[in-house]
Design a protein around this nucleic acid. Structure first.
Lengths: 241, 241
DNA sequence: CGTATACTTGAATTGAGTCAATAAGTGTGG
DNA sequence: CCACACTTATTGACTCAATTCAAGTATACG
């Protein structure tokens, strides 16, 4: 199912997102040794990377694409606990088994490690381990923000908060700023957004249209949102409206 | 504001909750060295241990009592991100500043460490550091479960899930099992529960009464719940009803 | 004892969900 | 290139679970 891409020499050194990833802490020689224990793998949209409950034998660093983390309730209801972007790690802060299912939203390129090997590597590279811990505490912070959102925000606050935080995490592509407007790609489906925010796809749709109607955003194509009025979005996100 | 309790000799070795805490991994001599960098502090109900946004200079191990972690929205809405019971750590998985406010629900006894000192200690005691990491990944798992609860469960499912998980975490006191019933103390206010579950205090109250009326639980006093029908509670928690 | 605080209960309201229909893409094979 | 099936997104009408607002009751406290 997964496509192996064989990069010669020292692939990690050439890695596009190294600076934003946990690997940033490593020296050239460290990167060389890291290259020895890593495999690059690709996934097509909707492919499953790992499943909730599985034993954690592999961990992944996201190089390209977006990953969706989900948890299911017995009766089929779904919560998307997060969307993971390049530079983040999958599976490191898990215990013995994965706490959620990870699926590809877009085409995906991941670095795959055997967990025990990476653990051994980290023991010899405390500078990198420190960054792993920092990422983990960032994850916890994000999880708490999400609880606040899910428990105490209205539908419009949820959606505007989401748009803003997604826009902020979107560093790479062109900000395409024509008059303070910012184009943001939303590669995931409306139902993914809904399941992330504790809403239904219909509500997500309705609120997006209402934001278009009042000129706050534009949706030239379903997966592209132009944030026209950041000030107004921020006001909505804080509930001042 | 905080009361210092001066224990002589090797206080850590005598610690009642050592077995369930991160300190369990330490040998006697390790405990001795740990004693040297720890201070026991007490807090009265409603006292603030630390505040969201403060720089993390101290970290705490909960010895006795219940701590409430909260996050606020600008307009005053509150989310209780968790209730912390003895054996858990406060502040370790934070970055530079606390991600939430910690307040005493009951009378509290904490072990206080200077963060940098504990960090140095952990570097010399990887066996304990491993337990710290395990606790952190447990926290993350709990956070994700809470997201699922907040985003995708009904009020009754939320409340019954909460009662069950609180009962499970309640290991110390007498199970008081007369006919499979289990008495559980709920030291926090209804509004704390509501803010934890993303509900209002009125809804919490109403659902508790309905559970009493159909014989699933009993509430002999406002802060004591007797779980009469665990089977039924579990069914409610899963949404099979 | 009066007073504040927490909890419960009731009635009315409403935000978001459900159900149902339509529109807009997307891809396939003839 | 077009017709068909298929999926995803939007829109509308109606419903309902949970909130809001408003008492009322119990409990603790000085």
């Amino acid at each position: 199912m997964s496509i192996e891409a064989l990069d010669p020499a020292n692939p990690c050194e050439a890695c596009a997102i190294r600076k934003e990833s946990v690997c940033a802490a490593l020296t050239r020689s460290g990167l060389g040794r890291l290259s020895a224990i890593v495999t690059r793998v690709g996934f097509a949209p909707e492919q499953v990377v790992f499943t909730e409950g599985q034993a954690v034998e592999q961990v992944f660093n996201v190089i390209e694409g977006v990953v969706r983390l989900t948890r299911l309730l017995p009766n089929g209801r779904r919560q998307v606990t997060g969307f993971i972007r390049p530079g983040s790690f999958l599976g490191l802060a898990c215990g013995a088994s994965y706490g959620h299912t990870a699926e590809a939203v877009t085409d995906l390129v991941l670095c795959r490690f055997r967990r025990d090997r990476l653990r051994a590597f980290l023991q010899e590279h405390p500078e990198m381990e420190r960054r792993v811990l920092a990422k983990a505490s960032g994850e916890l912070w994000a999880a708490q923000s999400q609880m606040l959102l899910l428990g105490r925000k209205t539908a419009r606050e949820k959606l505007t908060s989401f748009l803003l935080s997604w826009a902020r995490s979107w560093r790479r592509p062109e900000p395409r700023a024509n008059g303070s407007a910012r184009a943001v790609e939303l590669p995931m489906a409306r139902s993914d957004i809904a399941d992330h925010l504790g809403l239904t796809r219909e509500t997500v749709s309705r609120i997006l249209t209402s934001l278009v109607l009042d000129g706050t955003i534009d949706i030239p194509e379903p997966n592209l949102v132009v944030l026209r009025r950041l000030d107004r979005l921020e006001a909505f996100a804080e509930g001042d409206a």
